[in-house]
Design a binder for these strands. Structure first.
Lengths: 259, 259
DNA sequence: GCGTGTATGTTTGTCGACAATCCGACATAA
DNA sequence: TTATGTCGGATTGTCGACAAACATACACGC
């Protein structure tokens, strides 16, 4: 990729950023939750997981506290940590937060009028339309969440992006927690098309309205209100059955040679 | 206070919630940062602070990781943890996130049309109008942030409330990080009056606009753009000088008799 | 049979200690 | 004088171990 041309007067070097062991473990845990490797509600066996990651319990526990702060893990004193469950009655809370973040991200995106940023959203949208042609619910679900995340990321706000990265995992947790199993609509595109159209036309209010409607409808559908209204859904083996082996890749936290 | 009448069919007992040691330490650290007991940019001496809290380094480090996730602490490998600094160029990012959270909270609040919730916001507003009569900048600043937090809390969304509790501390950090020192406007009320009026009238868009304008103006002021435009400010000794003794109350994490 | 009480195994929560790393001061050389 | 190299002190990052608490299963009594 081409080097970014640094603006004149800017420092020649950016501050080096070396991820710590806790960083690596935290992302590993997030990925495990997102992928279902750590099933919803399952306890976090510290000795077992720390051995899988090739680290001690201390950095694992420190990393886990980050997910506790995010709400992805719940801690009960004396009982340890469990993967959070997003029950049906808490779905409105989750999606209302998504509406807050995503609608404002859309407003920012339109205000900035950055063609490059919008292009990335368009790319995610194209990827989604491609995914819905298939039948794999997981692929569709991933593309759906990727699109929504790309939208927020395009706004360029670090905090909203951080919020959204958590909300994405929480949404996935909600799908896993659902009694219906992991289901997705096959006609996800129409709502998204409305969002994209509003984004491209630069109509902030229309975009916000489309996003709010889309997410409100998603809430209603997941709470089962629209379960019998003939919306075509595709189920897939979502969360692995309890007792499955959690595969967590080993973490490399050795300093190692830099050359 | 009167007992809440539980709805019929609801479980008679709520799940008991016992705060863990890490919880206590985390809130203690947050308070220390908010109050300035831990100055901006100061390193977090683990042995020193853990002894002040009466705990070992392990639970302290775990609690600190929660603040890292919040962005209140920054971690540099091999260099430990430092209290985050919110430099001027990052102020727009912070306040844009506040706009996202607070405007949507206002929309929710108006949509719910809950008189009791609105009353709490009004109480916080009254407390603010009372505080601006005095000359203590810290008191005014506290009341200001309390009002904004009360607004979000009144919306009843757990996630937005959690976001806001962090944003409040980050805003305080920004004030501490400011080269101007800790300053507040003395005429904070007019903007807030506009917000309150819109909230009471039930005009969601007007409330959102008032909040956005208020926060945008606050951003401009803190970045120094309005420094010379004659806005009356009051300074106060904000952050304690470096080298001050961080007073952190000891934490009680002993199980203790339950009777 | 149902409920209570007890015992056991496992897991968590906390601690102290070790090694690696980093910062600062000092000395040295160009 | 400026820059480089070296040394020492201090702090972090990680580990293993201990004690307390919890969950499960089983036995006992009503």
């Amino acid at each position: 990729m081409p080097h970014n041309s640094a603006p004149a007067g800017a420092p020649a070097f950016l501050r080096v950023h070396r991820p710590s062991t806790v960083d690596l473990i935290a992302t590993e845990l997030r990925n495990a939750i997102y992928s279902g490797g750590l099933p919803v509600g399952s306890p976090l066996r510290e000795v077992e997981i720390s051995r899988q990651l090739g680290v001690s319990r201390s950095p694992l526990r420190e990393a886990a506290q980050r997910l506790v702060q995010e709400g992805l893990l719940t801690a009960i004193p004396g009982q340890g940590l469990r993967v959070a469950t997003v029950s049906e009655d808490r779905l409105p809370d989750l999606f209302e937060a998504r509406i807050a973040v995503e609608t404002h991200a859309a407003r920012i995106l339109i205000r900035h009028n950055d063609a490059g940023a919008l292009a990335k959203v368009t790319a995610a949208f194209d990827h989604l339309t491609e995914a819905v042609k298939g039948t794999d619910a997981r692929t569709i679900g991933d593309a759906d969440l990727d699109f929504h995340f790309a939208l927020v990321e395009a706004a360029g706000n670090t905090r909203l992006t951080r919020y959204m990265s958590t909300l994405v995992v929480e949404t996935r947790l909600a799908s896993f927690s659902s009694k219906q199993g992991y289901v997705v609509r096959r006609d996800v595109t129409p709502s998204h098309q409305a969002i994209m159209a509003a984004l491209k036309s630069g109509n902030a209010e229309a975009a916000a309205a489309a996003i709010a409607e889309h997410l409100t409808e998603a809430t209603a559908r997941m709470t089962g209100e629209l379960a019998e209204r003939g919306i075509e859904v595709e189920t897939v083996a979502g969360a692995p059955e309890p007792g499955a082996v959690y595969e967590l890749g080993p973490i490399d936290h050795t300093p190692g040679p830099t050359d």
